[in-house]
Design a protein around this nucleic acid. Sequence first.
DNA 1: CACGATACATAGAGTCGTTATGTATGTCAA
DNA 2: TTGACATACATAACGACTCTATGTATCGTG
Lengths: 110, 110
Amino acid sequence: MIRKELVAASAEPLILSLLSKGESYGYAIIQEVKARSGGKLQWTDGMLYPVLHRMESRGLIKSRWGESETGRKRKYYSLKKDGKTAMARHQEQWSLIHSVLAGLQKGQFV
Amino acid sequence: MIRKELVAASAEPLILSLLSKGESYGYAIIQEVKARSGGKLQWTDGMLYPVLHRMESRGLIKSRWGESETGRKRKYYSLKKDGKTAMARHQEQWSLIHSVLAGLQKGQFV
DNA sequence: CACGATACATAGAGTCGTTATGTATGTCAA
DNA sequence: TTGACATACATAACGACTCTATGTATCGTG
């Protein structure tokens, strides 16, 4: 089980990166994150949907209602311009923390 | 300014890694994190002290009151056994998220 | 002697994941 | 046909956590 704080910190960067490869919808995002993490990241829908709603209200992503081949309704999300900017910022910040942590483990400064 | 969620997720791993190099105290931890991040990570004491208290109550670290050369009181923290275990777990989880993110970003340019 | 740096502590407000619950449809086997 | 399971979205209550503000106290320096 991944720590709650780490889930919170990684959710938005992961969603943005996923959507940068093309539009997707909630359920599929959960499946893809699980697959890409070897089953270790198991997001719940109760966690994901509020995140998507917040990101949409902040203008990072936009949504449209669509249908699957079988006629089931889906809400497809895609990146907006601000979302791409946010994604770049996230990557910078992750790199920073990661290098500080790596430096500590090796006894080096950034 | 680093995102709040990322601060929350990185605080405990950073503190554990710092203390694994030797005991330290609140104020010095803030300074060292700032130095090691090139000034980009600026923790506040209002954020750090509760984190230290929680980590101590969970048995990850222990504290002792000491004095500086000038006689000022300091609360020195050091790693306990559980803290070393927790540090290893944090490193695993960070590596996982980092590799998933890296995989997504790499695929984005293919 | 005033000011900034050092040093620790806590309360209130706001945010976020977790867990639980609700609604609804499609697939497949007994 | 019926039951179980996967698909698909949504929200509320709860607890945990950071941020901001505030308080206390000491030390060095001009």
